[in-house]
Amino acid sequence: MRWFWIDRFEQFIRGKRAVAIKAVAMSEEQIDGYSPGFPVMPPALIIEGMAQTAGLLIGEASGFEQRVVLAKVGKALFHFPARPGDVLRYSATVLDIKTDGAMAEITCHIGDRLQAEVEMMFAFLDDRFPAGPLFEPVDFVAMIRTFGMYDVGKTADGEPIELPPFYAEAERVAQAAYPPVGSPVAI
């Protein structure tokens, strides 16, 4: 299982707000043992999906220079269970970004119904932690592209956002190792 708890972004406004969706399926492993006989999406994994939504929003605001980790969940209210077949819509709003962390509030809607409300705090890892990015740059780029961050991402002024140069270069190098799609491959 991949630790991806959102499927894609539907809206992404740099440093401000992001909306991501997560479609819950009966075939997913986390549904199996959590509540036998009453299959639900575990709330802790809803929080993880919200953290991925808000964490990427906060990380992108610094060009992914900051290493953003979920530090604390201040408030978490769940109004009813999310079940297989539901499409969860996580809306994250940045409340504050400081030099050593950030706060965000995130809601989850299923259709028009408010399913959950969470406030969370993120910390930025400092030099007490080993240097370097938290993820392999190429894997990270593949992940955020898969989420559609750069398909929908805009600045607050409505301009499209782009990959930071460091990650764009990692992507270029990785792509150069493969022949272009459609070109003949010798076997």
Partner: peptide, 13 residues
Amino acid sequence: SIDFLDIVFKLEK
């Protein structure tokens, strides 16, 4: 230690 960051956020606000 992580709570201090949270407290600072709250006090600033």
